[in-house]
Amino acid sequence: MATLPMIPELLRQLFRTPATNAFPAKYLPSSVTEFLAKVGRGEAAIHPPVPVPKDFRGKITYDPTGCTGCSLCAKVCPAHAIEVLKDEKRIRIYVSQCIFCSQCTDICPKGSLAMSDAFLLADENRYADHLIVE
């Protein structure tokens, strides 16, 4: 197939496994909550999320025990995602605004901030509980 070099490639691909990352369920279930309940009971299996490399910059974690409220992290945050609570000497991070540059974790003198592996963060409410770290 000199003029259509794609055809042999296509016919070969027809018998190979697809390259796409699998969704949690192969096809959209008619009811997602029912499907998840089934998974909970162990009647159905979900494809796990793809693994992430070492030092991946996922959802931020905050350990307030050592925090002194120095506000350096807020100073370097490009997205203004960090709110400094002056009275409590704590910070509050809005993950929906975070751009995952990890600059706050670099500058934090107490090592209170770190990036986790979590990346499935979609939510309809940008102020949902799991999207505010404090």
Binding site: L10, Q13, L14, R16, P18, A19, T20, A22, K26, Y27
Partner: peptide, 9 residues
């Protein structure tokens, strides 16, 4: 879809 290495609907 299979020829394009996708899972497809």
């Amino acid at each position: 879809a299979l020829m394009q290495a996708r899972i497809g609907p």
